[in-house]
Design a protein around this nucleic acid. Structure first.
Lengths: 118, 118
DNA sequence: AAATTATACTTAGATTATCTATGTATGTCA
DNA sequence: TGACATACATAGATAATCTAAGTATAATTT
């Protein structure tokens, strides 16, 4: 991962569920897809992503099934559940709100003098 | 904190250094200020913030000094250092970049059908 | 045909950061 | 005098990522 470990935490589930809302995917595919979409900024380690998927399944946000892909290799696909879609909605809102609040704090910092014009 | 623990991680230092770039502040003040600016979304626990300040000082990003405030109570003020300003700049850029990349992933998710219009 | 590489999944242990909970101490206000 | 807000500190619990190693199969290269 190119980013600090801390930055990733808290958005991992959001990212994974987002991709699974589009279509069923398998773990390795999710890693690649995140890498491509972020223009190589996200580079999840397998040791990070697979446990996340297991956790999501344990919580009932996704369900897994085995299937042979176009290569002939058996893969473990994950499908988002209704509970997962709900969770995704909540996490998306939380994320947007969080970003906005961070911006409120840091934006003021660099532009304190602006207030003197108001 | 109203947000998931994970969300906070990675932006704590950014938030604290941002506030310290504006002016010297003491710990308790930082907690209050974050609470106000975020419209009550950020509610850092003392057990979270104080260790962060200690960590920042150990890394040389801030320096502390004791001073009596307007109340007469002795407070421990923190001043950002040059290294801290550098660090803040880097973390700000990382944050902006990170947000953008998250948005690239999750925006596509909810609006897949938009592509059919293009 | 054999060796290498990419794909695909798994898990144990180390690291790190927040949170909980508690403790200490001072100043203000009723 | 008692209650409350201010102000700082730290130990231990919790949780999530990363490192690192292992297993197995398909595709590619030599």
């Amino acid at each position: 991962m190119n980013y600090d470990k801390g930055l990733i935490g808290g958005s991992t589930v959001l990212l994974v569920l987002s991709l699974l809302q589009e279509q069923d995917r398998y773990g390795y595919e999710i890693i690649k897809e995140l890498h491509i979409r972020s223009e190589k900024a996200f580079q999840f380690k397998e040791g990070t992503l697979y446990p996340v998927l297991h956790r999501l399944e344990a919580k009932g946000y996704v369900k897994s099934y085995k299937a042979k892909g176009d290569t002939g290799k058996t893969r473990k696909y994950y499908k988002i559940t209704k509970a997962g879609i709900e969770e995704l909605k909540e996490e998306t809102e939380a994320w947007e709100s969080f970003c906005e609040n961070v911006r409120k704090v840091i934006a003021a910092g660099g532009q304190k003098s602006i207030n003197t014009y108001g």
